[in-house]
Design a protein around this nucleic acid. Sequence first.
DNA 1: GCAAAAGTGTTGCCATTACACCCATGA
DNA 2: TCATGGGTGTAATGGCAACACTTTTGC
Lengths: 229, 229
Amino acid sequence: MTSFYSEKHKFLLAVDCIIFGFHEGELNVLLLHRSFEPEKGKLSLPGGFLKENESLNDAAIRVLNELTGLENLYMEQVHTFGDVHRDSGERVVSVAYYALININDYDTSLLGKYNAIWVKSTDMPNLVFDHSEMVQSARHALCQRAAIEPVGFNLLPEKFTLPQFQTLYEAIYGEVLDKRNFRKKVLSMNVLEKLNEKDKLSSKRGAFLYRFNEEKYKEFISKGYDFTI
Amino acid sequence: MTSFYSEKHKFLLAVDCIIFGFHEGELNVLLLHRSFEPEKGKLSLPGGFLKENESLNDAAIRVLNELTGLENLYMEQVHTFGDVHRDSGERVVSVAYYALININDYDTSLLGKYNAIWVKSTDMPNLVFDHSEMVQSARHALCQRAAIEPVGFNLLPEKFTLPQFQTLYEAIYGEVLDKRNFRKKVLSMNVLEKLNEKDKLSSKRGAFLYRFNEEKYKEFISKGYDFTI
DNA sequence: GCAAAAGTGTTGCCATTACACCCATGA
DNA sequence: TCATGGGTGTAATGGCAACACTTTTGC
């Protein structure tokens, strides 16, 4: 007796990753110069094909690791793109993931190795296939997520200043926030610990460094509060 | 020269649909008794395999149409499930979609034809594979969507009463809402037209019927207001 | 007349917003 | 001393939640 599954068509499956980094007050996305046909040389998202004994998530983790050298990145599935002719080479269904990295952890020598560039998300060039749409979707997903969960910290170094933190959220939301209101809200959550150090890189006076405290966050959540910035 | 795409592994791709209907104050989901091995006889979501020259969305539309006889259903992609062993038969990656139908439009003779049943979403039995997780994800996605866009109307007949409408949102959100506040908010949006008819099925006094007005809604949105219930 | 659901306004509170000046420091 | 970015508090507003009684009508 033949299986029900037989004679069904099979497809190439890819994951494409929108890797966000935060640099100079802007969200940046890591792009590649595509190294193979079709569309060779054009800009594209980093991606890879799903392997036989690999889950989708693992494929995304693999692609992210290959490209950044980093592990345990924060990532989230965004959407699956399945138009018949979305890839001009062959039929490929692609699952988009976004990831957040602390751009300081990124080894810039990899840029040369992979012919990669960081591009400001406010200033995205055209990408191959439907990759521009993927970036749009990812930005939207990140915006929604960041509003309700503390994922933004993944884009910052361990120690960061409140002005940095605010600029990050301004970049994510694409709007400017009131300094006093922002600080009031963030500090009232009691999830940041203030350090006795200042960062003097961006001002003469210097700004106090803070650190996200997982324990405090759990406590905050356990009291039924929600993290909405 | 061989294509870069060659020698990559290919996969079975499925779509599984969470079809929501609203009945007797509850969200219901359409389930099938699985008609083939493995897990034959167990309850599962309706689904189907992606075809060679078909987009993912078209596959979902096809499955929905087959099962309900309805066209132009509201639907949304939810998430893609890609664990290696999620399907105990063979490796299958599945894209979950949810759809909203006016349960009165549903031809109940189809229940027999497909060995299908409507099940209250508050009272879901165990489903095959990861289908229960799919339902969870779909409920969550619907909840989010319904809060910001008027998709709930797809679950109601063209004419409906405010008590019905409120009960729908209570079912979607899983919490009871204050009658006066709810009516105040909904009516203040000015997107419903009140009809000169009453529905007397659920009370002696009867409740006025309303109809969603697309034009009014567009006007409402164009003024920069947002539909948050 | 009574049970059962429909319909209707007001008030208080809290969260969000708007807003302007002083501080510390390096150059 | 001045230019630059860091840091601080208050008042007004509007949106949201809480809340109870009257109406209608079939039985």
